[in-house]
Design a protein around this nucleic acid. Structure first.
Lengths: 249, 249
DNA sequence: AAATAATGTGTTTATTTTACACAATAATTT
DNA sequence: AAATTATTGTGTAAAATAAACACATTATTT
């Protein structure tokens, strides 16, 4: 219960600015460069991959780097991320989500650059890379040791984010061909989570989720009994996801 | 398997910039104002509260707003958030975590302002508010209808984040006095999650976690049988949190 | 002294998770 | 064509976890 002060006591001063005043603050001083860095994951040869280029800065050409760019003044953050993805993959319907913003003062040698990290998942088979400039290539996530500036930190954050996220939402499917066998699906989860899963329990779990559709087809060109192919029913998932509470291995 | 191209085929052009070039890009064009907005949650009278002020912009003085400010050019993002917290609460050891960055082009009328949202949890009892200017007050989270600009969206995002986070990490304790009864703890969880929990199962769960220390004291001035007081053992939690996998109601 | 309002405590049941083995099948080798 | 190989497909039992649920106890207030 706040005691009522005597009339003499000064009311808390009301700080007040004009919009014009703020406009000049916003437009002159106190501005920073803002970039978006994309951590683009892929899955190939049963390994989780990340898409890297050599730094496009001469001085750092021996370092690998995430794909990123400065955000344009009239561009939403997500738009910026999609622009970067489109440039290199030609696709603009990719899975994309913001993960974290990195803004340490000294993180970039060109001055104050704050970077918003986005995570994207793409299907390595379906989407051949465009514009291979600057040595654009897939790298095994596990074998990435050092990156430009704080990009390793950004990658680590996104990798951890993915490991958690993939157990709460069915986003792994973005990394697979639209038709896949359960073995492929399990390999994917094992690669992301970095541990072995029990095959029978894995299958049971996914079937009980009831979002997999049997395509009535089988794998081809495998040197053993072929597995059935399934697709993920995104529509059914969208309808039911309200009552959905994760996969949880 | 990529086919090896004939020698005549142009190698992908290597885009290359100098650091100086980038420096001028970073320093002239392509800059945006960056702000930090803090969603500060409290817990009082068995309700989850959020700390709001009236907008300090004359034009919007009838709207409530989150606490925020522009990030200074030589200031880390977190530093900026702590500065804002310190200004209004006098404390600088508060729980603080980054949640999301909001950067839509049209979100701020003074121009392009990208805002990094931080979530903070404070104990309403221990930390009396400083500097009540601009009608600084606690508001029931549930009753907040409209806020300045996109601040309602930011609040909603942080509230959802908190609901999830509190089931994975023991951060609710930051909202309580250092000594609390299990009833208070349960009220807190019920307020955050917005549903009733079973009292016996709740107690069982927290005791089996084994991070609560019995203070050997009891509640005072309650019109009924007093409950025992506990504190949360942060040290023990820090030691054991590697093997910890959430609370999960 | 009686009424009130909340504390403190355990067990049973249902659900979920884990561990685990063998027959069937297509391709490849002999 | 028979044998070998590698992987698919399937079910059950045990263990762990979560959910449901009731009553005696204790300060305080009336």
């Amino acid at each position: 219960m706040a005691e009522i002060k005597s009339k003499k006591a000064a009311a808390p001063q009301l700080h007040s600015k004009t919009l014009k005043g703020l406009q000049s603050e916003v437009q002159s001083i106190n501005r920073v460069a803002l970039s978006v860095d994309c951590v683009i994951f892929g899955f190939d040869e049963n390994k989780l991959k990340v898409l890297l280029i050599r730094s496009d800065l001469k001085k750092y050409q021996n370092k690998f780097s995430l794909l990123g760019d400065l955000v344009k003044p009239d561009e939403d953050l997500e738009e910026s991320a999609y622009r970067i993805l489109k440039q290199r993959t030609g696709m603009n319907d990719l899975y994309l989500e913001q993960v974290h913003t990195f803004g340490e003062v000294g993180r970039h040698p060109a001055g104050r650059v704050v970077s918003v990290a986005y995570c994207s998942l793409i299907n390595v088979q379906h989407h051949k890379l465009k514009n291979l400039a600057n040595d654009l290539h897939w790298h095994d996530v596990d074998s990435v040791k050092e990156l430009l500036f704080d990009h390793k930190k950004i990658l680590d954050a996104c990798y951890k984010w993915l490991q958690k996220r993939v157990q709460e939402h069915p986003l792994g499917f973005s990394l697979l061909p639209s038709k896949f066998s359960l073995r492929e699906l399990q390999n994917l989860y094992e690669a992301i989570l970095n541990r072995k899963l029990d095959r029978r329990n894995f299958r049971k779990k996914f079937f009980s989720m009831d979002f997999l559709v049997d395509m009535g087809e089988e794998e081809k060109n495998v040197p053993h009994r072929p597995g059935r192919l399934y697709k993920f029913d995104y529509e059914k998932y969208e309808r039911k996801k309200k009552t959905w509470s994760g996969i949880d291995f």
